[in-house]
Design a binder for these strands. Structure first.
Lengths: 371, 371
DNA sequence: CACTGGAATGTAAACGTTTACAATTATAGA
DNA sequence: TCTATAATTGTAAACGTTTACATTCCAGTG
């Protein structure tokens, strides 16, 4: 590999001049600039980012740890991070935690050793104290979806409790009283908050909390599938389900479809996150927007400005969550799906009549929701 | 930040000893090792990866460029790359091309300047010659979904032509004759090959190629939506659609659903890639598997071994594509959806009868497909 | 006791940049 | 022509590691 010295020699100038040309410093004659650029082309020379970082003591790398890059939620987040990094002239170093504590720690330590300009961590399993330790030691580290006491201004979060409250309130407004909740089995901030939002919504409408209607599983497609089966197998009747995230909701809906339980005519479903998938499901899934791209971008900017000790740039914006109405919520059916299933299995005719009335009820609701 | 010198001083040894401890070299007494580790903990010291890379002349970073990290196809790919990199003790530097030539070039140059251990490029818009140039200059660069003459052994590809041939053959086997094709508007390898596979399938079954049944758009959800509308607006009748990828297929299906055209009773659909979304659609989408994770892993391994000039490790495996049967393909309807739409709009009754016969036809096909 | 060999440790020169600071050259004014 | 000043260029010391080579230390041997 050619070095800056080779270029200097070929262009007949000093290394300083080459460096100046390559960094766009003004203090260089047009003649020298030409010679340098020519030599650079000839040698196919590229500045060595490592050496540059070392000499400058200012990295152009922003490190990110997420659970799983193939999860569309993180996909959107990392996309936004890369974009924001690009705007700052930086590149993204990405690690995966894969839901394992050991792997998450390796990922964080790895970023640490790269002495990144910024550091954005989404850790599911690392305990608070350890994370707190890291936060203390590296001032530019920013957390996503966690809230560590004492570091609130470096934790990027949405109001999950409020979001889930919104979601469940919509189900209640549609007339549901037996509302199940499918949660995440990881006990981090958003999981706890969303469950709390579900509970508050029920309480504030004087509905009973039935533990038999709450299940938790891995926040992935298969987790949704398992949770749905578990819920159905419990034999407790429900007419609506609020789900931790859209991916689990997709799994749940696929089980309902398989069993011939119609969404939304028999069971209404509401998700969380509003990933692309939500628009593709049939029926399209009503859900809560999660401004994950804004969060990613804000995290990158915050982290980078902390690194440069910009005090004023460090404030985080408020992130808005809101309910998106699609087609997966309808008023509860006159006859619950448990009864219908019994009826069907006892050989009665298909319920064409009930489909029509379901459509009618749906139209009513939509009118009420104002579009 | 503490440096290796600080650690050496505190531990009362030389920097060489510290380095040896940190790199697991055997030539160091237990006593010294202890002292070093203690000092390291005390100072919260982390080796500087940049300095290490510089001194060792062997990077531990693998660079990857993809179009869009939020695209689930690339999500899976990058996930696999990160995993493979992790196994090699490396980290991933990720850039996005975002379907713009300028941005793709910036991304590549960026990776170049990091002097990565490996370099994996998925470029949509950079022309062959330029890519060829890069390939010549950096021996460890590996291409995904491109095939540049002279560098075949560094291009990671599946047999797209064969895959699409398989997909369309399934439609033909189900009895379809009027088969539309929704392609990608980017003219790179996989787009061309998949179109060719579609054409070969028709030809080899003596079906006519109708240009009016072929559209192309952006390979994203919205592209699928637009393509579907375009196709329908042309007023040419078709009973099946083969789509460039699952994401576009999802967009297409959502339009069909909206218009009341049933999948698969009125129109059969087959996708490509088998992303998670395919399993979540209703009906679940029949598609072609794309072993994108294996490809990502293979690309990382190949790239890293090229960097170290391992000649023998450099062979690429064959990647298998196969048809996955789900529920989106049925035999063509007795009455085409264009006629049905007319009928419906002229006020006739809903076609309950036709639904039953559709179910029957579907069952027949499934029996034929052997599951 | 001198000598040998091996283990443990230390010294210092890379690695490829940036950037103060010094040195040189050019420009203009006297 | 000679300064004074500004513009350009060069020199060399960092930056934080690794590692070849040199040195030191000790146990074991004759």
């Amino acid at each position: 590999m050619a070095t800056i010295r080779d270029v200097a020699k070929l262009a007949n100038v000093s290394v300083a001049t080459v460096s100046r040309v390559l960094n766009g410093s003004s203090k260089v004659s047009a003649q020298a600039r030409e010679a340098v650029l020519k030599a650079q082309r000839e040698l196919d020379f590229h500045l060595n980012a490592n050496a540059r970082t070392l000499a400058r003591k200012d990295s152009e790398i922003i490190g990110v740890t997420v659970s799983d890059l193939s999860d569309p939620y993180f996909g959107s987040m990392v996309r936004a991070c890369e974009n924001a990094a690009h705007k700052l002239g930086c590149s993204l170093l990405v690690c995966q935690g894969l839901h394992e504590e050991q792997r998450e720690i390796v990922a964080i330590e790895n970023l640490l050793s790269h002495h990144c300009r910024g550091m954005i961590v989404h850790a599911l399993t690392v305990p608070d104290e350890r994370l707190s330790d890291y936060m203390r030691r590296v001032p530019s580290m920013v957390l996503i979806n966690r809230e560590i006491p004492g570091f609130e201004d470096r934790c990027v979060n949405i109001d999950n409790e409020h979001g889930e409250y919104l979601a469940v309130s919509q189900l209640i407004a549609a007339g549901h009283r037996d509302i199940a909740y499918v949660g995440s089995r990881h006990s981090i901030l958003d999981a706890k908050e969303r469950l709390a939002g579900y509970q508050r919504a029920l309480k504030s409408h004087n509905l009973p909390l039935k533990p038999s209607l709450v299940v938790a599983d891995e926040p992935l497609l298969d987790g949704g599938v398992r949770a749905a089966k578990e819920l159905i197998s419990r034999g407790v009747s429900f007419t609506a389900v609020a789900v931790y995230n859209d991916t689990m909701a997709a799994g749940l809906i696929s089980v309902l479809n398989e069993k011939g339980i119609s969404v939304p005519d028999d069971v209404s479903v509401v998700g969380f996150d509003d990933i692309m998938l939500a628009r593709c499901l049939n029926p399209p899934l009503s859900t809560i927007t999660n401004p994950v791209e804004e969060m990613g971008e804000a995290a990158v900017r915050l982290s980078s400005s902390l690194y440069h000790k910009d005090r004023q740039a460090a404030a985080l914006p408020e992130f808005e969550v809101r309910f998106v109405s699609r087609k997966s919520i309808a008023p509860p059916p006159a006859k619950s799906w448990t009864d219908q299933l019994k009826e069907r299995s006892s050989g009665k005719a298909g319920s064409h009549e009930s489909k029509v009335s379901a459509a009618f009820r749906r139209a009513q609701l939509e009118a009420k929701q104002g579009k």
